[in-house]
Amino acid sequence: MTFRHTIARRFVLALTLLMLVLPLAAQAPERSDEIKSPDPKWVVGDPAGPPRTGVELEKETARVASLLRCPVCQGLSVNDSPATMAQNMKRQVRDLVAKGYSEEQALLYFERAYGEFVRLEPPLRGVNWLVWAAPVALLVIGGFFVLFMMKRLQRAPKNVEVASVDSATPGRDTLPDDEHLAHYVLRTRELAYGWPGGLSPASRGEGGEESR
């Protein structure tokens, strides 16, 4: 490996090929005859299930691939991305699934190389629990809060100050005693709610769908 050569564009191909082999020949590493891709077994052990083929293989491949982030894209899954990298990864997923590796094993294989970053769905471990539990917790707490507020609002005394007319709560068919004023209240209701004559459907005997 001590030879030197100048970088010349006119080098013939054959010469180059020879030189490509040379450094290695000098090094003389052992050679095996077949190309071995990294064996997933080495990382995630034996397949959890039986080998898969056909439609099942395609379906499972698409499902697992959609859980993997394409590392060179912006948040797209390996299943969706047209990038070469994603296509390669999808092929790798298909290989794994075909051999019978489970979803979790396949994901772990990629996770070992790319880190947790590659999983689009955070696995349930450690601090990740938060991202799954927090919305549920909010739903429960919020639900109780709404119920509590509803109870409190139901008990709240009607504030009479704001009532410009006696029917402070809209939708009631109560009317002020003053006949002139009652006329305006009816017209206002007609305008506001679209009730003919300002009378609610309930009071006209049409059922209570719209309002009461």
């Binding site: 970088i7 290695l24 891709s37 990294p38 590392p71 990864m89 990629f110 070992r112």
Partner: peptide, 23 residues
């Protein structure tokens, strides 16, 4: 390699699986 020279072996990862294994 012919144009730019080389002094060490270059391997071809056709399937991309080695690149994937190395993340």
């Amino acid at each position: 390699l012919a144009e730019n020279g080389s002094s060490y072996p270059t391997l071809f990862d056709e399937s991309g699986q080695t690149a994937i294994a190395f993340g």
